[in-house]
Simulated scan of single mutants.
Amino acid sequence: MSSPLTLDALRILDAIDRRKSFAAAAEELYRVPSAVSYTINKLEDDLGIKLFDRSKRKAELTAVGRLVLDQGRQILTASEELTVLARQAAGGWEAELRICVDSALGFDAVYDLIGQFQALQPRTEIRLMEEVLTGTWDALNSQRCDLVIGAAGEPPGQGFSTLPLGEVAFEFAVSIDHPLTQIPQPLSMDSIRQYPTVVVADSSRYLPTRSSGLLDGRSRIVVDSLQRKIDLQARGLGVGYLPLNLIQRELQDGTLQIIKLVDTRPAQQFCAAWHNSNRGKALAWFIERLQHMTFDSRLGLIADRPGD
C-alpha cells in the first residue's frame, strides 16, 4: 500500500507553513491556489486526519499536522541529500572518505588538509581515525579506511600504492626532575632498567601486532595512544622513546628532557598508502596534496617550501 505522503505533498505542506497561506504557497510553487487546496484536502481525506485548523484567519497546522510536517521536512532534506549524493557519485566524488592517521605523525597538517578539502567539496563526509603501529596497515587491509597517512614498514600484501612522507625521529625522554637526568650520559640499558617504560599498545585487530619502545625485563605501563604516553612520561611515571615532533611543547616548557642512550633508536620511515583500485576524486585530491608535503623531524608534516 503506497503512502499518500508523497514528496510533492510534503513540499506543499512545507510551503503553506512557511508562507502562512495557501495562496502564497501556490505563488511560491508556481501553481494555482485551487491545485494546492486540492492536494491538501485529498491528503487529509486519505490520511483521515485534519492537517490545518481552518477556523483561523491564517493557515495554521493542527498538532497532528505539525507532527507530519516536522517529520516530513526530514524526509525532504534526506531526499535532497540523496539527489546531491547521487550526482556527486556520478561525477566521481565519494560520499565518504575514511582517513587513518598514525598517532606518531600528529594531526595538525591533516586538519589543514581537511579544511582545504571542505572548501572544495563539502558534500563528501570525512571520517578521521587514529591508529598505532600495525593498526594503520590493518585498517587499510581490512577496508576500514581508504587512506593511511603514516604507515610504517612494508604493506601486508599486494594491491597497495604508497607515497613516502619522510622519517620520524624518536628520542628517549623523561620528566625534567626524573633521577635519570642526574646521571652522566649516554646511559646504558642497565641504568634505565629499574624504571617503568610506557608502551603504546598496537591497535591492529587482525594483522600480527608489535610493540614500540619495549625494553626487556622492565615493568610496563601500557596505554592506547601516544598522547597518554607523553602525559605519563611528563609526570615522571615512566620513561621511553617519543616522536620528537610531538614533544616540542614539553621540551620548550621544561616538562620533558631528552636523555641520550648508548643504544639509540633509528628514525622510522613513514608513508601514505591506499588501495590501487580506489579511483575516487576525494582520495586523488588528498594524494595530490600529500605529494607536495614532507615530514620535518621537529615540525611534523609540512608543505614543501618553494624551490625544494
Rank of each mutant, 00 (worst) to 15 (best):
G92A: 13
W285V: 11
F52G: 04
G254Q: 01
D202C: 12
A169W: 09
Q121K: 14
Q269M: 05
L242D: 09
L246E: 07
E60R: 08
W285R: 08
Q71A: 12
A169D: 15
I192W: 00
S204F: 03
A234D: 03
R123H: 13
P33Y: 07
V101R: 11
L242E: 08
Q118A: 11
D14L: 06
R289F: 09
R123K: 08
T264G: 09
E167D: 13
V199N: 07
T6R: 10
T294I: 11
L180W: 00
I49E: 13
I49A: 13
V222I: 14
D263K: 13
R193P: 05
T197V: 07
P122C: 14
R31K: 11
L133A: 11
I176V: 10
L163A: 10
A59W: 05
P306H: 13
P243A: 11
L290P: 09
L5I: 05
K56P: 04
I176L: 07
I302K: 09
Q182V: 10
Q88I: 10
P156N: 12
Q291G: 15
L207W: 06
G65L: 03
S21H: 00
I302A: 12
A25H: 01
L13Q: 06
I183F: 10
P186D: 03
R98M: 06
R11H: 13
A35M: 01
M293Q: 11
D263F: 14
S225R: 08
L207Y: 04
A90Y: 13
A26Q: 00
Q227G: 01
W285S: 06
L163K: 06
A139F: 04
R210S: 07
K42E: 15
V32F: 03
Q252L: 06
R18T: 03
L61M: 11
Q233K: 01
I176A: 12
E167A: 11
R66V: 02
F170D: 04
K42C: 04
P33S: 09
G300D: 04
L7D: 10
P122R: 12
S219L: 14
S2L: 15
H292Q: 09
R210E: 15
L5W: 00
S225I: 08
P196L: 05
C100H: 00
A26W: 03
C271D: 06
R31D: 00
F172G: 03
K42F: 05
G65I: 02
S277C: 07
K20E: 14
L147R: 11
G48W: 06
